[in-house]
């Protein structure tokens, strides 16, 4: 059923530390390796050795640079490696838009999964996700996404130390942490509280479970502010244009 559970007793998820990620892509590789042989269809590649290689990944690392507003030219930017995978949102828009019931959020632990036997590959869930967490596999024609390694974390055939998502297990700098974010006393919840963990795109109203720990201030370039400045208010045009702008705002 694509209706979301009201609340889940557990909120399993990741806490990603942007202060220590070095952008080595080990989590990307280990994610691909584990999940191509694990839950559901393999993660295919198209033209892996050709002119335009492309493939399905459940975890990708972007690298951003941040330049302080105040310093402008001449300042050296801060470079931040930015791992991104499914945030297992409490209010997951990808689940409610699914026409078939293939997408669902587990009531017991909050993991968002795709039943690949039901998925018709319409791609609407990928449109509904602001984070780019869902990718349609071109070979299988079904939607793939992070499963939080559901086939590892409850797997009693594995050593206890291995019962965490593959990306967490492999990270050489401990930039990724796994745990229950519904429990305020869990190690991940304490980490989020101590380091001021944040949600990505809170304005989208998705209530992500995964949290990001911002880079520590001593890494920030001089002149950095404390908070994200609000978007500059749009100036209302004069005359007919201004009137039309008001009409459009009223319609919403």
């Amino acid at each position: 059923m694509t209706a979301l559970p009201n609340d889940t007793p557990k909120k399993l998820g990741l806490v990603i530390d942007l202060d220590v990620c070095v952008g080595c892509h080990a989590c990307v590789v280990n994610c691909k390796e584990w999940n191509t042989g694990g839950y559901g269809a393999a993660l295919s590649d198209q033209e892996p050795y050709g002119e335009t290689p492309s493939g399905t990944f459940l975890n990708r690392i972007h690298t951003f640079e941040v330049l302080p507003e105040a310093n402008g030219a001449g300042a050296s930017p801060m470079v931040v490696h930015f791992p991104k995978s499914c945030l297992h949102c409490a209010d997951a828009p990808c689940v409610t838009v699914c026409p078939t019931g293939a997408s669902y959020k587990r009531a017991e632990d909050g993991i968002v999964l795709v039943n690949e036997d039901w998925c018709i590959g319409c791609g609407l869930c990928a449109w509904a996700c602001p984070y780019g967490a869902r990718e349609l596999d071109e070979a299988e024609g079904v939607m793939k996404k992070c499963t939080l390694c559901v086939d590892r974390i409850y797997n009693e055939n594995l050593e206890e130390v291995d019962r965490v998502p593959a990306c967490v297990r492999t990270c050489p700098t401990n930039a990724r942490h796994f745990g229950d974010l519904a429990d305020p006393d869990s190690a991940v919840s304490r980490l989020v509280a101590a380091r001021g963990g944040v949600d990505l795109m809170p304005e989208q109203g998705t209530a992500p479970v995964n949290k990001y720990l911002p880079p520590r201030r001593n890494r920030a370039p001089a002149g950095a502010a404390d908070e994200t400045p609000p978007a500059a208010p749009r100036e209302r045009a004069a005359g007919l244009t201004g009137w039309l702008e008001r009409v459009v705002e009223m319609i919403g």
């Binding site: 290689p53 990708r60 951003f64 640079e65 941040v66 302080p68 071109e138 949600d199 911002p214 994200t228």
Partner: peptide, 21 residues
């Protein structure tokens, strides 16, 4: 990225050299 508190944000490197889905 929630990095706005430190300044303006620009993509330095995309996740892969080629496009994706």
């Amino acid at each position: 990225t929630r990095l706005g508190r430190y300044g303006r944000v620009r993509l330095l490197e995309p996740p892969h050299s080629m496009g994706n889905y």
